[in-house]
Design a protein around this nucleic acid. Structure first.
Length: 728
DNA sequence: CTTGCACTACTA
DNA sequence: AGTAGTGCAAGA
């Protein structure tokens, strides 16, 4: 093979390569799938010492300068042509160490994306000044205030963190974990460095009727305890939570457990203090400097515990012993940028790649977590039924049937039973009122019984284009002319549009002597983190429920019909998770805590809450998914782009055995309505699904199919999204 | 025989 | 993606 002709790059002067390991293997930041491999460059002598695995560099790629990361130094290259020199060493900080690079590669393969896309998610933008910042003086940090709103610190239990022997000699004090089936064993194995995997369903906090705390075993105390145990064994810990409020809540528990925020107040704790007591908070909504500072503190090992929101799933943690995802069902754990990785999957891959323990935790149970349990990949950790019953509030369903017994009063949106619960609760403390987010939920449902309508063929949701009377499946495009409801055999469909506002005003008028507080992203006061234990009505949208000191005396979950309506794959899980989040802030039944579900909600979801049995619901959902061939029982890939291009990819892709193609269907409504799913006008989407066992093969073949089709054909680009959450 | 721009090939 | 190199059509 003749060596390719190469012109001297303009302005390129000859450079002498380093004597030792003159070749750098580089992953370049180019967003093109077909260019997603490593490239070899020469290390100039001037950079001989600074170029190590993980550093950022600038390289000449084609006719442009691009950013890249060095993966390794080599003595020789397998590339046959001439190598070009590295252009610039951006920084000697190894921001993509080997373990991170391996994780990025594995995640890219899992999601059929490019490594460079994943690296972009994993490494925060550089903030040069932060790199040279000196560490804080030890004296400066002593007596520093822990996180705002911290409750009184619990008595320090066990040896001071890190003060004891570095490796595992401290006895494992599992604390409240001992009360859970499988809890103590999980922590013990995790602390001994085993790659155990657990799925844990947390209980609500323990409060008395008077609103005092009986024990520090709310979920944040439990997680803090797990952090302490594994950290005291000498290993690192990573906890990923949905949003900043949850991170704050865990921060307070960590502070109470004797740990310290290593980068609070814009300075990094000295190494010895940080290593022993420090944790680092990695939050997407922090500024670039603070984000990079926290990242560096983790990277440099100044703190061995990292907590944060979804990008933290990639954080470098040396000797990672335990990775935790809290509320893995929360949509915030799904990254919105290509290749759309999910925190739970990233941590699961990490558990396999780095051999660390994994804890998938939440108040509820995701279908995906249930699948991990069912397959035997993870162990179930949870309290006995008797304990659950003792800790959960009493849940009453005020459905239409229930309310009908009241007679004419049932016409009101809030039945008298709910008013009574609120009034009685207010005598004991704060009462939470959860209202579905303002706005409209478009749903196509049976005109008679309101059951959401789905495709007789593939069980996709049925859409009804305006002006058309024939429903069409939004997955496979089939016209369901002779649709009839599988439940009540009705044959009419209707678009359900429900509004949900006014509630706060209504309640405020009814209880004039009680303060009404409102918490919500769009409300004037924003989202409240906490409220006091004083009697008050607290109206909140899902996800914005403040924690009440001493727990709520009661909660009303309004408009259950709206909360559980929807055609999306996840609504039942979403609904029960939103309800559990609210209900878990209420005092236990034994302390008089009551939750009322108001309205005609899905009976399955309502039942799961009444019995406080999220695992049962997840198990049932999983059965259904298996039967219908939906994720996580199968793996799916969505191909979106111009029809011609999507068809070309499908034609040129060798799909694994057992794979089936649904669609393609237009991604924009036929009536010219607003484009959905970020698709361009006229784009189509095809879904390819394959049995879980063929998942790797499916990802690999789709990736090859999308990459192999050159841009040369000009039919447009096809976007690939594995395991889409919204199959709608 | 020039100039302008669409088309495509390539990136170490 | 982004760019340089190639080929063909209109202009002088």
């Amino acid at each position: 093979m003749p060596a390719p002709r190469r012109r001297p790059a303009p302005g390129a002067q000859a450079v002498t390569a380093a004597d030792d390991l003159p070749v750098a293997r580089v992953v370049v930041e180019v967003p093109v799938l077909r260019l997603d491999h490593t490239y070899d460059y020469l290390v100039p002598v001037s950079m001989a010492d600074g170029v190590t695995a993980g550093v950022r560099v600038k390289v000449r790629f084609g006719a442009q300068d691009v950013d890249g990361y060095v993966l390794e130094r080599l003595a020789t290259s397998e590339h046959e042509g001439t190598l070009r020199p590295l252009r610039r060493l951006v920084s000697t900080e190894p921001v993509l160490p080997n373990a991170s690079a391996r994780l990025c590669r594995v995640v890219a393969e899992h999601y059929a994306g490019s490594m460079s896309d994943v690296v972009r998610l994993a490494v925060p933008p550089r903030h040069a000044r932060t790199e040279d910042e000196p560490l804080a003086e030890a004296a400066v940090t002593t007596g520093e205030q822990p996180h705002n709103g911290s409750r009184s610190p619990m008595a320090p239990d066990g040896p001071a963190p890190g003060a004891s022997a570095p490796h595992g000699s401290a006895p494992t004090d599992a604390g409240p974990w001992s009360g859970l089936a499988g809890g103590e064993a999980f922590l013990r194995h995790a602390a001994s460095g085993a790659a155990v995997r657990g799925v844990w369903t947390a209980l609500p906090g323990r409060w008395t009727a008077g609103g005092s705390v009986l024990a520090d075993d709310g979920w944040e105390d439990m997680v803090a305890r797990a952090v302490r145990v594994v950290r005291d064994s000498g290993r690192g810990v990573l906890v990923v939570l949905p949003d900043a409020r949850d991170v704050d809540r865990l921060s307070r528990a960590l502070d109470a457990a004797g740990l310290r925020d290593a980068t609070a107040s814009g300075r990094t704790l000295p190494d010895d203090v940080g290593r022993a007591h420090g944790y680092v908070r990695l939050l997407a909504d922090d500024g670039p400097a603070q984000r990079y500072r926290a990242f560096l503190a983790a990277l440099r090992g100044h703190a061995r515990v990292v907590i944060g929101t979804r990008a933290a799933a990639f954080a470098p943690v040396a000797e990672l012993g335990l990775a935790v995802v809290w509320e893995d069902d929360d949509p915030l754990h799904a990254e919105q940028r290509a290749p759309y990785p999910h925190v739970r999957e990233v941590l699961a891959l990490r558990s396999e790649a780095e051999g660390c323990a994994l804890l998938v935790a939440g108040l509820g149970r995701s279908v995906e977590a249930q699948a991990l349990v069912r397959s035997g990949w993870a162990h179930e950790i949870g309290a006995a039924r008797a304990v659950v019953r003792e800790r959960a509030p009493r849940v009453r369903a005020l459905t239409r049937v229930e309310v009908a017994r009241e007679g004419p009063a049932a016409v009101a949106r809030i039945p008298s039973a709910a008013w009574r619960i609120a009034r009685e609760g207010l005598a004991q403390g704060p009462v939470l009122v959860q209202v579905p987010r303002a706005g409209y939920v478009p749903v196509t449902a049976c005109g008679t019984c309101r059951e959401p309508a789905d495709c007789p063929d593939c069980h996709g949701p049925l859409g009804l284009a305006s002006g058309s009377s024939t429903p069409q499946c939004r997955w496979c495009g089939r016209l369901a002319a002779a649709w009839s409801c599988p439940r009540c055999h009705g044959s009419t469909l209707r678009s359900v549009l429900v509004g949900s506002e006014r509630t706060a005003e209504e309640l405020g008028r009814a209880f004039t002597n009680v303060p009404v507080r409102i918490s919500g992203a769009r409300s004037a006061g924003g989202v409240l983190a906490t409220v006091s234990g004083a009697s008050a009505l607290v109206v909140a949208t899902p996800g914005a429920e403040p924690v009440a000191a001493g727990g709520y005396a009661a909660a009303l979950l309004l408009d259950a019909g709206v909360a559980t309506a929807g055609t999306q794959l996840r609504t039942r899980q979403d609904a029960v998770r939103r309800w559990l989040t609210a209900a878990s802030l209420v005092r236990p039944a034994t302390a008089g805590g009551v939750v009322a579900v108001v309205g005609d909600g899905d009976e399955v979801v309502t039942g799961a809450l009444v019995r406080w049995d999220p695992a049962g619901l997840a198990d049932r959902e999983l059965d259904e998914r298996v039967e219908l061939g939906l994720p996580p029982a199968v793996r799916v890939g969505a191909l979106t782009g111009p029809r011609q291009a999507v068809m070309a990819v499908l034609a040129e892709t060798t799909l694994p055995p057992g794979a089936t193609v649904l669609g393609p269907v237009p991604v924009t409504p036929a009536d010219g309505g607003a484009p959905v799913l970020g698709g361009e006008l006229g784009d189509v989407r095809a879904i390819v699904r394959a049995p879980r066992g063929e998942g790797r093969l499916l990802a690999a073949s789709l990736r090859a199919g999308v990459a192999g089709r050159g841009a040369r054909r000009g039919a447009g680009t096809v976007r690939l999204h594995m395991d889409v959450a919204d199959l709608v």
